[in-house]
Amino acid sequence: MKKHQYSIAMTAICILFGIIIGVQYNTVQKQKVSTENQRLSEAATAMKQLQEERDALERKNESLEQTIKEYEQGVLGTDMMRREMEQLREFAGLTEITGGGIVVTMNDSSAQKSGNKNAYIVHAEDILAVLNELNSAGAKAVSINGQRIVGTSAVACAGSIVTVNGVRVAAPFEILAVGDAEVLQAALKFPGGVVDSLSPWGIEINIRKESIITVPAYTQTALWREAEEQ
């Protein structure tokens, strides 16, 4: 009986045990496969990514080639653009301008007169008046003590001194203007003009015609860069 009992129980358990082992074996095999599958899918993802990258690069390459072709075809256009750019740079005051023109020198009054001392020194308003006349007379380029006057330029009063383009300048003021010297001179000297209105105060204002003067370029590009970044 005991022998019998042993055989039955052991056999039953062995069958059960065997089934568990078999199932576990299946699981392990499956996991191996799934690990391989995982690697495979990872590789597939990487490949897909690389293919997309390659496609993107090909597209970029294509568009760049297209651009090159357009450039090659449009040499005339680029020439025109370059000329336009040069003109614009000149217009914006980013280049030196050399040519005939006048040099206006303004200095504080040397006469020792009683009364309001403020009346005998050169003010920002006086410089602005001269500047305005020069521009209206068709000056191509104007600079004040080496500061080129551009679209954003300001001539401002800052206490006892004057600032141009934010740079402190002091008397004597030397204003360079490229343009038709005769016209420019006439614009300042006409009766009742700027020179006339300043002379009663003893402000020394000299106008000198020059055949060749060089007006410097605008150098403060920092403001422009800031504007671009915004």
Binding site: T11, A12, G18, I19, I20, G22, Y25, N26
Partner: peptide, 17 residues
Amino acid sequence: IPIIGLVIGVTAGIYSG
């Protein structure tokens, strides 16, 4: 007999899927 049972069990387990 238990060994045969074990073999049967393993086979069944594997082939059960």
